[in-house]
Simulated scan of single mutants.
Amino acid sequence: MTLHDLSEKDVIQIKTGENLGRIDDLLFDEHAAKLQSVILRGRGHLFGLLGYEEDLIIPWESIRNIGTDVIMVDAEPLPAQHRTKRCQ
């Protein structure tokens, strides 16, 4: 499976059923030669004109199942009101 294959799947939080987004990047530990986590870029507000939510980093160990359409994770995302905006 490639990063492109992973990026086409929605990431779903198992406990709440919330769609967290899609994988945009991976963190790789070059010393241990293993994947550390996946990165979901923060969602834009008004096409990014009003900033972005903070990126969500999910440890690789939190991924419970990779299906044909979705990736199920057991990770607690920060509530939207506590996430800070980033500007690009």
Rank of each mutant, 00 (worst) to 15 (best):
I71K: 00
Y52E: 09
T2G: 04
D24L: 04
L35H: 05
M72S: 14
I58G: 01
I63W: 04
L50C: 15
F28A: 05
V38N: 01
L6I: 05
T84P: 00
E8H: 00
G17R: 13
Q81H: 15
Q88D: 10
T16A: 00
Y52G: 04
L26F: 05
E53K: 10
F47R: 14
A32M: 09
L50R: 15
T68I: 07
D5E: 13
G67K: 01
K85L: 06
N65T: 09
V70T: 15
D69G: 09
L46E: 09
S37P: 07
F47N: 13
K15V: 14
V11P: 04
Q36D: 12
R83M: 02
N19D: 12
G48M: 03
I14R: 15
K34D: 08
D74H: 08
D24H: 05
I14Q: 15
E61Y: 05
Y52H: 14
I23A: 09
L49A: 08
L78E: 11
A75G: 00
F47Q: 13
P77R: 08
T84Y: 07
K9H: 01
R43P: 10
T68M: 08
I12R: 14
T2L: 05
V11N: 02
N65R: 15
D55S: 07
L26Y: 02
L20D: 03
L56I: 11
I12C: 11
I12T: 04
I71W: 01
D5Y: 09
L46N: 09
D55W: 02
L78Q: 10
I12V: 14
R41S: 08
Y52L: 05
L35P: 11
D5R: 11
C87Y: 15
I58E: 01
C87N: 15
A32I: 03
N65V: 05
L46Y: 12
G21L: 05
E54F: 06
N19H: 06
W60I: 09
R22N: 08
A80H: 13
L27E: 10
T84K: 14
L6E: 11
F28Q: 02
W60P: 07
G21N: 04
E61F: 03
G51L: 07
L35R: 09
I66G: 01
S62D: 01
P79D: 11
S37Y: 04
D10L: 06
P59C: 04
E8T: 06
D55Y: 03
G51S: 08
G51T: 01
K9R: 14
Q36E: 14
I39S: 10
G44W: 04
R83C: 01
T16C: 00
G67N: 06
S37L: 09
D69Y: 12
L50N: 15
A75E: 12
E18K: 08
